[in-house]
């Protein structure tokens, strides 16, 4: 497919503009991480400060349990992603394809759980976690994260399944598939872009959360990354260098995960083969 050169050029202009906007504040974070002396603000704009240093990065690995936090975060996020994708791919399918009693009520009630201001739920949540003896365990945290990520994931998957023509399964069933194997063998592969978004979203829910984590995890060795990073913050004497350096490092795994998955997000496999 060809298109006029001016249009292609316009595409590049728009994208470059937004790339600049997207990166602008990030460069500031990079700059803070290279500045000695924990200085958040600067009166001159410069990406590489005059007396730049990688000391904050070095400290993270040598003086702070950064790798331990990274491991903890990876463990929790991996578990949440797995559960999130499995449960949401099934739940979304049920809501998209079946007509059953309570379907609408269930879908709406899932949504309503997202509507309560989260800060007000902290106190009862802490009481619950404490009573169940889940303080200082990753179970307590992961269950909470899965349940926060699921409502969006289920709705998202439902939306994706809705775009897949129902004739696809009907054809599979004619070929002798059961409803279940039609789901796993035919629908799931086609729904990959949706699964990728679900996976990314579940991952991010667990990866960047710290408010609930601060309630559950009470031992520095068990901290997840965001919680560790928040520990560099203290009123009027924050370790800005470490804070910024760690924030940059925290985003790298996200970018990697995205790189890995984005191939499926735009794999070009289309439903074009299925003629309605």
């Amino acid at each position: 497919m060809n298109e006029p050169r001016t249009l292609t050029a316009l595409r590049h202009v728009v994208l470059l503009l937004f790339v600049a906007i997207a990166l602008w504040p990030i460069l500031d974070v990079v700059s803070i991480s290279l500045r000695p002396g924990d200085r958040l603000r600067s009166t001159e704009w410069e990406l590489i400060p005059e007396n730049w240093t990688l000391d904050s990065y070095r400290q993270l690995f040598t003086e702070q349990p950064f790798l331990r936090w990274l491991g903890n975060s990876l463990l929790v996020s991996a578990a949440v992603t797995t559960f999130g994708v499995v449960l949401a791919s099934m739940g979304g399918y049920a809501f998209s394809r079946f007509q059953f009693v309570g379907r609408q009520a269930m879908m709406l009630s899932i949504l309503t759980t997202q509507m309560f201001p989260a800060t007000m739920l902290l106190l009862p949540l802490y009481i619950m976690i404490a009573k169940l003896g889940l303080i200082n365990t990753f179970w307590g945290l992961s269950i909470f994260y899965v349940s926060t990520a699921l409502p969006f994931c289920i709705w998202q998957m439902k939306g994706f399944y809705d775009t897949i023509p129902i004739s696809l399964e009907e054809a599979a069933k004619i070929d002798g598939c059961s409803q279940f194997s039609a789901f796993t063998k035919v629908i799931l592969p086609v729904a990959k872009p949706g699964l990728v978004i679900t996976a990314l979203f579940s991952f991010m829910t667990a990866w960047s959360e710290y408010i609930v984590a601060a309630q559950v995890l009470q031992d520095r060795e068990m901290f997840t990354l965001p919680l560790g990073i928040k520990g560099f913050q203290s009123s009027m004497s924050t370790q800005w260098g470490l804070y910024a350096a760690a924030s940059i490092l925290v985003s790298i795994p996200v970018v990697l995960v995205f790189m890995l998955l984005s191939r499926y997000l735009v794999s070009g496999m289309t439903l074009g083969a299925v003629k309605e």
């Binding site: 994208l15 937004f18 790339v19 997207a22 990166l23 504040p25 990030i26 500031d28 974070v29 803070i32 958040l40 991010m204 960047s208 710290y210 965001p226 990073i229 928040k230 804070y243 910024a244 924030s247 940059i248 925290v250 985003s251 996200v254 970018v255 995205f258 790189m259 984005s262 735009v266």
Partner: peptide, 18 residues
């Protein structure tokens, strides 16, 4: 694609301060 998702990838608690 990669560069455009970066605002989402970097934790909001630092970028908001930035």
């Amino acid at each position: 694609r990669l560069l455009l998702i970066i605002p989402w990838a970097v934790p909001a608690y630092i970028t908001a301060l930035t």
